[in-house]
Design a protein around this nucleic acid. Structure first.
Lengths: 356, 356
DNA sequence: CTCCGTTGCTAAATCGGGTTAGCGCCCGAT
DNA sequence: ATCGGGCGCTAACCCGATTTAGCAACGGAG
């Protein structure tokens, strides 16, 4: 096919030295092993002229490394979420000269096992186990063959693996504070979870933590949640029905929607009821999904930092790779990545209208 | 760290044979090379008991392959588009025991060069060069080091690389036919491109081809496009302003929007003007973005088959890998993947109202 | 009895690097 | 003249597989 790759032997021959010498010079150990300036220069020049690049496969065989990390997620296709997370991981890895293997388990444990095997067979230097929505996962035990971190997930059983998660509690506080700052005190309703601390969809870490943050911040201001409705699935249609049902019995002044898709449904229900956002009802939400800036008025929302999560996962993974002396009994650190507020036009001060 | 991997030497020792024999048996060449049943059985059993898995890095060094393909795209983070494309490629690759390297160029030629290098250094068996929106790209010449295909992209200069693209012309015809079938003859306006064949955003293959298909299908039915407005960028806000401007001078009966985000903006403008979809105005669009089923009424749209595109790219790539005898002067085949219609609720027969 | 061919297996080379042990040379000290 | 030691470099082995070339044992033909 193409002209054979340039090998170290070619460089050595061109420079008139042994492969050993060429290897020492090019791996930067020439100085410490007293290779002469003259030889060093000849080797470097030969390498440049021949455009030599070391074959990473060969290096991998000798050293057991591959300059590669594996990114295993339950799905890569849900919204742009996955894309941004992968992008962050990709860039952080590239900065260190590492490539990314992508794998998708679709929640299938057997597939996950095969994928881990395939990655180990390729001698990955580390693994990222990612979930596309924040939740607890069962960590496969074969994971211990290489350093690993959990991304957007917490282990069901205690493990020494570090976890990288969005700071959902603080996000909840932030959403609540936006309403408080605008002057809201009454008629604050939740759509997607709540009002009680137990009213959350199963397995959703995000729901629990956001709810905790919301209740904390409101509580500190002496404000009570007026009501809340749990949605079985956080999709627009459920946001719509939950809000429509709410409007039959109450006149909310502000809605905290548990994600942007729910908020979109809420917008539709408010519109049907002839209520204007933000003049009649303020709306704040979570995620910063692309639609948040497509719907009108544009939605104020607390953003999931997907890109940063991906970067952070790689950063933490590299510290794991570097100090290999981790205590297998100490549970892994949990790293929280801040969720920034995106202020848009869906919040206003409560008018002098009726409360609910 | 972990107990050393089981190697072929371990299996050979356990079976009481040489590494050569073990290798022959396990690679299925035992029969042809007259290894006895007895020995074959001992080797297979030893391999199973020790849970032997060949080290792909080592195989790679010897054979020059890696059971890995590289997926290089301009960006992986735009909408779920990329995710589905990657997912399709991922599954098709996995079915053959291959893994996927992911890389992102961000449109930077230098980054692309480095990425290609990094992949060649890892001896990828093939490459997929993907674009996140259908367009023409400049093919880097170092690509020839391995079999490659273009995904969602056409080469600027003729190359022997095959290309995999959505069948946009047929999609255009399909969109037009939906309206014709519903009885529309007058007041059909285009939003995003047209009405003339040259009225398209630069570099957008999709715009040109969709427009061609639309004009063909309408022309065959003896129907003329009532008007069209080009959008500089296919985002909701531009769909909104284009539609708002249109409504100042015309009363359309049907809109063909060039993508779903534009259609979303069009919905907003129609709503502002007090026009109902689909009773006053029918709307058909392209892409089947998630929002198409979130907005109300749900949008009839001709779907981009991202998942299928990804699969197809891998399929075509493997035929390239298998017959290595490609003529470097013959231009590569162009494979078109059908774009299926998603019928929803945004189309109705034209009412007896005024035409525009 | 010798020669030859088949059968069943293995030694050794190979891929492309990294790493260890050590070789030859020159210089200064004894 | 001899010895010791630093200097500058290289031979040889290693990683874990595949593949080529070939060896030993056996049986049948001449």
């Amino acid at each position: 096919m193409s002209p054979r790759r340039v090998t170290l032997a070619d460089v050595a021959k061109a420079a008139g030295v042994s492969r050993t010498t060429a290897s020492l010079v090019l791996s930067g150990r020439g100085r410490e092993l007293r290779i002469s300036q003259d030889v060093e220069q000849r080797v470097v020049q030969a390498a440049n002229e021949l455009q030599y690049r070391p074959n990473i496969v060969s290096v991998g065989l000798r050293t057991g490394t591959s300059r590669t990390i594996g990114f295993i997620s339950d799905t890569v296709a849900t919204s742009r979420l996955a894309g941004d997370m992968i992008k962050g991981a990709l860039e952080a890895a590239r900065e260190r000269g590492f490539m990314l293997f992508i794998g998708e388990t679709e929640g299938d444990a057997e597939l996950e096992r095969l994928l881990l095997q395939a990655m180990h067979d390729r001698q990955v230097d580390g693994l990222i186990l990612a979930s596309m929505f924040t939740r607890t996962i069962k960590v496969p035990k074969s994971i211990t063959a290489a350093p690993a971190v959990l991304l957007n997930a917490l282990p069901e059983q205690p493990t020494p693996l570090p976890a990288i998660l969005p700071d959902e509690v603080e996000a909840g506080r932030r959403a609540a504070r936006v309403l408080l700052d605008a002057g809201h005190r009454d008629g604050i309703h939740l759509i997607g979870a709540g009002p009680g601390i137990g009213d959350v969809p199963p397995e959703s870490v995000a729901a629990v933590e956001r709810l905790v943050g919301i209740r904390e911040a409101l509580g500190e201001a002496g404000v009570k949640v007026a009501g809340g409705r749990t949605c079985p699935d956080w999709q627009p249609e459920h946001g719509f029905t939950a809000t429509r049902d709410l409007l039959e019995t109450a006149r909310p002044r502000a809605l905290i929607c548990f994600n942007d898709r729910i908020a979109m449904g809420a917008y539709q229900a408010l519109d049907d009821a002839g209520l204007k956002v933000p003049d009649d009802v303020s709306v704040v939400s979570f995620d910063d999904h692309p639609i948040a800036s497509w719907i009108r008025p544009r939605l104020t929302t607390v953003a999931l930092p997907h890109y940063e999560l991906g970067r952070k996962a790689v950063d933490v993974l590299f510290t794991e790779i570097d100090n290999d002396d981790t205590d297998p009994d100490r549970p892994g650190d949990v790293h929280r990545v801040p969720m920034p507020l995106r202020s848009r036009e869906s919040i206003a001060s409560p008018s002098a209208a009726q409360s609910g």
